[in-house]
Write a protein that binds this DNA or RNA. Structure first.
Length: 957
RNA sequence: GCCCGGAUGGCGGAAUUGGCAGACGCAGCGGACUCAAAAUCCGCCGCCCGUGAGGGUGUGAGGGUUCGAAUCCCUCUCCGGGCACCA
């Protein structure tokens, strides 16, 4: 059978076998000649050769992958292929392009996978990286291999720790709105330039108090806060890592709020800058919107309410100081519609406020069936604590504290409740209940029989049972009456300020970033503790290496257990004797590690100067690659700096991309980078989807074992199954691996197919049976240049005729523009059209055409093009990588004559061929002479005529 | 509920942003070559009427602007994504 096959298939046909030979041959030669290595302007990676003739620099990146170990499917490399095609194109246009790929190897995914396979995370991670490298190398990606860092490299995380120390040793100066070294804060406090928060004097504080004050200003700080504890993962999680349903983003496990002492990053200090600087970025609008929503800026007012009644004076004390409740509201204009007050159950004032006994005014429904307010509060709190945030969702419940609050100006007393629907985490954890203008408050008021006072006049047809949130004149509002919402807001704010009862304020939804993880596989935090708190390790002690632990798995997996960092199991590591300036002393190490996001916050910077032992990145190298003002005609986006093009999945819209922007801004403030933003242009590549099949029980069956068709129905081992479209992956049993495609078609065919499937940012369904189309295209190109049976060139030395030459240059023009705009699907279509014309002619291809065609194909199918390039130019020729991308001859783009459609009363009635520079009269005359047009005009009077040059002739009769 | 995207042949998609709807590919149909099949090459391929030339109709639905609308405006339907007691 093998013989028969060999006899039938021409020996030099471009098939999977030949493709594999070509691909491995050229990959070896490219590697040997270091052809993809990109020089830096200075430093260890500078080149001796002068590279002055380049068109400029370009820094292109993919979001680096987690080496998760289950290997790649064909959906993973979509973005990588796209960047590689673009990078190769730009190199051929003369750009000095930085392009490489690293691995995000610390963190939960890698450790969870290691846990499942039982291997040590380091061994597992290294094996996974090797496997992924092999799969990716096979695609022929033109990475500069010298620059591909892994976040788990000691040489890399040494600098992650260094950045942590930079952040720890900084504070946010809200006057200048930027981070400054902590030493400057100490200086300002001690020399009196900056007033102390409590009005005291720096020298009067003990050294422990001084440290406490300073520590409370740091951008990285330890705080006791309610955090997201995920027992199943054995760690706490950032808000960004918890889903709306109150479960872990990774693994979908239960998450509970519990107070713990944890490392936090003061990202909230940067909320406004993170928001404003989005304007500088060329990012998808949807990602910007997600970040805006996450930051959640809202303008409103803080209003203070006095309270009456309530708890008696503390034992032994005199009179209890008047307790004030502070609320945040975006609608201060509705103040006089306040008919109750509601606090979060966890609100710190609740204990002070709660009365000993129910006052006479208390309605039965407010008491929660309890004998005293304290009992009611205790019962209600116990119930609330047991529920996740999400579960607290739907109900509108609460209990009365037995105490009243007083509305400023009107002096109306309103009852104070604690209520589920008020969240401690937003605003002040207390709201003024305004049933007239807020639907949630309206629901609550209805449930507890509270009054509804409208303070904005609703339209006549507004239903009685609904809150009115629109604009209108204020009513029932004393001095606000008659003003509209905006006017009333301004007016009440002014009066509140004068009365010292409130002020305008900006509130954010975003919280500080919880930075500790009770996990082994992460960067150790370079901090030790003495009896007063955290002490930074000096830079000389970096890297602080992660100890090799055999017993690394998390243990605390029960719901009520406490987090237990694995690093605490190593006694000799836990306690350490150091001389940090005060002589040799014992310290206790920080046992938590950094979250998965730490390493990915700055890897793009290390790509620039990966081997620099002195600094994170040489400033000259950094500003060379990260300044993009000279590059591209974009208006209004200059000055952000950053990676020229960043491609990755939309799933990182708020996590990685927000954290990285935050770190970059801190580094910018401290003078370590030259611009305020890390990624100037962002593209989210779409997902590759695939059909998945379910049997009658609803269980997924392997998609590659399913037979049948849409018409005939699908079946698996004789049983009918149903088809659906979903994300490719193990869970849907619908993965197709690149390795499968390499065996059947070769890497270049896979590249071409993935780029041809559709626009880069669109989801698209994978169809293995369509891949053959891309292979056939390459086979036809091959046949137009190489004789399949002899392997000889099929190229003529004659110049192409005018018609072919014009087609060639039209193709160059269109393909260049498509490549620049990353519209690879249409670029491929146009190349296919040109090649189809060559096939149609059936003659040997003119060398000039073959040469240009091969160069245009080189970015898309680099091995294939390299092979043909050397067939055309001899084995000793330089690489097609170093050839110039063809430039269209403008003179050949305009034809002498054009065929123009004729539109009569809105319908196309024919086509006429006229000279390209014909005027309207000539064009219309030609149109009227066209038989079919003439027949339709049939003597009627021409009412209107129009000629859009080269496009259309429009006639109206 | 709010905010973004989408919807074009049997399928993936194209249309220079208001100017020939369906490029290119898959699938399908017909032909050439072949003893035959595969491969290759040539042709057809939205729907309806017509032998044909051609005519009608057609870009989720309805309306509008325009000489001209897949593209702009209004109303609606469906699909995908994000946010959601955020005071």
């Amino acid at each position: 059978m093998a013989e028969a096959t060999a006899a039938e298939i021409p020996p030099y046909r471009y098939d999977a076998q030949l493709a594999a030979q070509i691909e491995s041959c050229w990959q070896d030669r490219w590697a040997a000649s270091a052809i993809h290595e990109t020089p830096n302007p200075v430093g260890l990676l500078a080149s001796e050769q002068d590279s002055a003739d380049t068109a400029g620099k370009l820094f292109v990146m993919d979001m680096f992958p987690y080496p998760s170990g289950s290997g790649l499917h064909v959906g993973h490399p979509l973005g990588y292929i796209a960047t590689d095609v673009y990078v190769r194109f730009k190199r051929m246009c003369g750009f000095n392009v930085l392009y490489t790929m690293g691995f995000d190897a610390f963190g939960l995914p890698a450790e969870e996978h290691a846990r499942q396979t039982g291997q040590h995370p380091r061994a597992n991670t290294e094996a996974n990286i090797d496997n992924m490298r092999r799969q990716l190398d096979r695609l022929g990606l033109s990475h500069d291999k010298r620059r591909g860092v892994a976040t788990t490299d000691v040489d890399y995380y040494r600098w992650t720790q260094w950045i942590f120390l930079q952040i720890f040793n900084s504070w946010f100066d809200s006057d200048t709105c930027r981070a400054r070294p902590i030493a400057e804060l100490v200086e300002e406090f001690s020399n009196g330039v900056r007033p102390m928060p409590d009005g005291g004097r720096w020298e009067r504080l003990s050294s422990a108090e001084q440290r406490q004050l300073i520590d409370s200003h740091r951008l990285a700080y330890v705080a006791d806060a309610p955090v997201n504890w995920c027992p199943a993962l054995g760690t706490v999680l950032a808000n960004e890592e918890v889903t709306n349903e109150g479960r872990s983003e990774r693994g979908n496990h239960e998450v509970f709020k519990r107070p713990l002492s944890q490392w936090m990053m003061r990202i909230t200090a940067y909320a406004d800058r993170l928001l404003q600087d989005l304007e500088l970025l060329d990012w998808p609008e949807s990602v910007k919107t997600m970040q805006r929503n996450w930051i959640g800026r809202s303008e409103g007012a803080l209003i203070r309410f006095a309270t009456t009644g309530g708890a008696e004076a503390p034992a032994g004390g005199s009179v209890a100081p008047a307790v004030e409740i502070e609320v945040f509201t975006t609608r201060p204009d509705t103040l006089f519609g306040t008919t109750y007050m509601a606090l979060a159950p966890e609100h710190p004032l609740v204990d002070q406020l709660t009365a000993e006994a129910w006052p006479d005014s208390a309605a039965e429904s407010w008491k929660g069936d309890a004998a005293t307010p304290r009992q009611a509060v205790a019962a209600y709190r116990a119930r609330a604590a047991d529920m996740s945030d999400a579960a607290r969702g739907d109900s509108k419940t609460g209990v009365y504290l037995g105490v009243n609050a007083v509305v400023p100006f009107s002096n109306v007393a309103v009852p104070v409740f604690i209520a589920d629907y008020v969240l401690m985490g937003y605003g002040t954890g207390a709201v003024m209940g305004v049933p007239g203008e807020d639907q949630r408050d309206h629901d609550f008021a209805e449930a507890y029989g509270l009054k509804v006072i409208r303070t904005v006049q609703p339209p006549a047809d507004h239903p009685e049972h609904l809150a009115y949130t629109g604009d209108g004149p204020s009513i029932n509002s004393l001095f606000l009456d008659g003003s509209n919402v905006a006017e009333s807001k301004a007016l009440i704010l002014q009066r509140l300020q004068e009365a010292d009862a409130g002020q305008s304020v900006v509130n954010y939804r975003m919280r500080d970033w919880l930075f500790s993880r009770q996990r082994y596989w992460g960067e150790p935090i370079p901090i030790v503790f003495d009896e007063h708190g955290p002490v930074a390790l000096p830079e000389e002690l970096l890297p602080l290496e992660l100890p090799e632990l055999m017993d690394w798995a998390p243990r605390a997996l029960a719901r009520d257990s406490d987090p237990e960092p694995p690093l605490g199991r190593v006694n000799e590591w836990l306690d350490v004797e150091l001389d940090l300036g005060d002589g040799l002393r014992r310290y206790r190490r920080e046992l938590n590690t950094m979250p998965q996001w730490a390493g990915s916050c700055w890897y793009y910077l290390r790509y620039l100067d990966p081997t620099n032992p002195e600094v994170l990145v040489d400033p000259e190298v950094e500003s060379y690659w990260m300044t993009n003002s000279t590059n591209g005609p974009e208006v209004g986006l200059e000055g952000s700096g950053g990676v020229d093009l960043y491609v990755g999945g939309v799933e990182h819209a708020v996590l990685h991309l927000l954290y990285a922007r935050f770190w970059h801004k801190v580094l910018y403030d401290l003078g370590h980078v030259s611009g305020p933003e890390p990624f100037k242009r962002l593209i989210n590549q779409g997902y590759i989807q695939a059909y998945a099949f379910k049997d009658s029980r609803g269980v997924y069956v392997p998609a590659d074992e399913v037979e049948g068709s849409v018409e005939a129905g699908f079946n698996h081992q004789g049983h009918p199954v149903t088809r659906e479209l979903g994300k490719m992956g193990k869970s849907l049993k619908n993965s197709v691996t690149p390795d499968d495609m390499y065996v059947s078609y070769g890497a270049d065919t896979l590249r071409l197919y993935e780029m041809f499937m559709g626009p880069i940012d669109q989801d698209r369904p994978w169809e293995t049976r369509s891949v053959v189309g891309s292979q056939r295209v390459l086979q036809r190109v091959w046949r137009n240049i190489i004789d399949e049976s002899s392997g000889e060139l099929r190229v003529s030395e004659d110049p192409p005729d005018q018609e072919l030459l014009r087609l060639l240059h039209r193709t160059i023009d269109a393909v260049s523009r498509d490549m620049e705009a990353m519209r690879f699907n249409t670029a491929i279509a146009k190349l296919t059209e040109l090649n189809n014309e060559l096939t149609r002619r059936g003659e040997p291809t003119p060398r000039e055409v073959a040469d240009v065609l091969v160069r245009m194909l080189a970015p898309l199918v680099p091995h294939f093009a390299e092979e043909l390039w050397h067939c055309l130019n001899g084995a000793d020729a330089h690489s097609v990588t170093q050839a110039k991308f063809p430039v269209a001859d403008a003179g050949l783009l305009v034809a002498d004559t054009v065929e123009v459609p004729v539109q009569l009363n809105g319908k196309i009635r024919g086509r006429v061929t006229i000279t390209a520079d014909a005027d309207e009269a000539t064009a219309v005359a030609a149109a009227l002479a066209e038989p079919n047009v003439a027949a339709h005009v049939a003597g009627r009077e021409l009412r209107k005529q129009l000629y859009v040059a080269g496009r259309i002739i429009t006639l109206v009769v």
